[in-house]
């Protein structure tokens, strides 16, 4: 995949407009899920379900505005309201809404159960989602037991064939992190190990590039891409991808901070490598971002106080 820069090498101070357009267009590229949600949510006519639905939509709205923590509270509220409805009279719609909220709260096992019950009550779509969640949960438990090859295989299947976006994103993240895992020190410097490492990094790069192509406006994928590129010591591209991730928005404060530190790291590496006019141009460009983000200086994000 050919990545496009955002201006560190051409003295530009804004995003490449072509990429931005592509990214914005990509934002609307999961119509099936959105359409399904709209139809499903608008069909919830009864009052308590309407309240649960409204809170779910409010959470999504907050998420789009990058107010992740507030969104979490609304997902919790929506889940509680759906549970209350289920306690009175279980319906497919209520279970589906509960499952959707649970996915957003990282309650994978509970979401799988809710989707299964929704499917049992007639919601066909929910069965496929439950299967994907089950596979993801299985992969996580294999990973926790140290069965990395098996878990990688499952993440790979989900990343490649998965249809349910939250599961696909989580699987891509886990798969990439596993690929980036350091080899044992004893064999790290052998030529065979170096070759293997380079092969693994290429595989990781392909996985993330594929994900970025499918969802160009997903900040999390650009964050993952930046991480892989840093392993390949491609600091310029890694910096550009981190900036892109920051601008598109990241799913949590923790990832946002990690991404900021990645930006700082790449900036410092490039400042060491570059010289003369190239360095001056780079610093001017970089400082425009620093100013935009209201950082204290080139290496101190606003949240960093020490």
């Amino acid at each position: 995949m050919k990545r496009r820069g955002i201006g560190f090498d051409h003295n530009h101070t804004t995003h490449n407009p072509g990429y931005r357009r592509l990214a914005v267009r990509g934002f609307y590229q999961y119509p099936a899920l959105i359409f399904f949600l709209a139809v499903f949510l608008s069909s919830c006519a009864s009052s308590p379900l309407l309240k649960a639905r409204t809170d779910y939509l409010q959470a999504q709205e907050l998420e789009r505005s990058l107010r992740q923590e507030e969104a979490t509270a609304f997902y919790k509220k929506s889940r509680e309201e759906a549970s209350a409805i289920i306690n009175k009279k279980p319906t497919a719609e209520a279970y589906l809404l509960k499952g959707l909220a649970e996915v957003n709260l990282n309650l994978w096992a509970e979401a799988e159960n809710s989707f299964r019950l929704a499917a049992a009550l007639g919601e066909d779509k929910a069965l496929a989602w439950a299967e994907e969640l089950r596979l993801y949960g299985l992969a996580r438990s294999f990973e926790a037991q140290g069965w990395t090859e098996t878990s990688s295989r499952l993440y790979d299947i989900l990343a490649d064939k998965g249809k349910y976006q939250p599961v696909v994103r989580a699987a891509v993240g886990q798969l990439v992190d596993l690929k980036l895992q350091a080899r044992p020190e004893t064999e790290a410097n052998s030529p065979a190990s170096q070759k293997e490492k380079s092969k693994t990094l290429s595989e990781a790069l392909k996985i993330v590039e594929r994900a970025v192509e499918s969802e160009p406006a997903c900040g999390y994928y650009h964050y993952l891409l930046a991480q892989v590129l840093a392993h390949q010591k491609d600091y310029r591209e890694s910096l550009e991808e981190s900036v892109m991730a920051k601008e598109l928005g990241l799913p949590s404060e923790k990832i946002n901070r990690d991404n900021d530190l990645q930006i700082v790291f790449c900036y410092e590496q490039l400042a060491k490598i570059l010289s003369g006019e190239e360095l001056t141009a780079f610093q001017i460009s970089y400082n425009n971002w620093v100013k935009k983000w209201k950082w204290l200086n080139e290496t101190t994000p606003a949240w960093k106080r020490s």
């Binding site: 992190d177 980036l180 350091a182 990832i255 990690d258």
Partner: peptide, 9 residues
């Protein structure tokens, strides 16, 4: 949720 495996550098 962040990528835990960072490069040596």
């Amino acid at each position: 949720e962040v990528v835990d495996n960072k490069p040596d550098e």
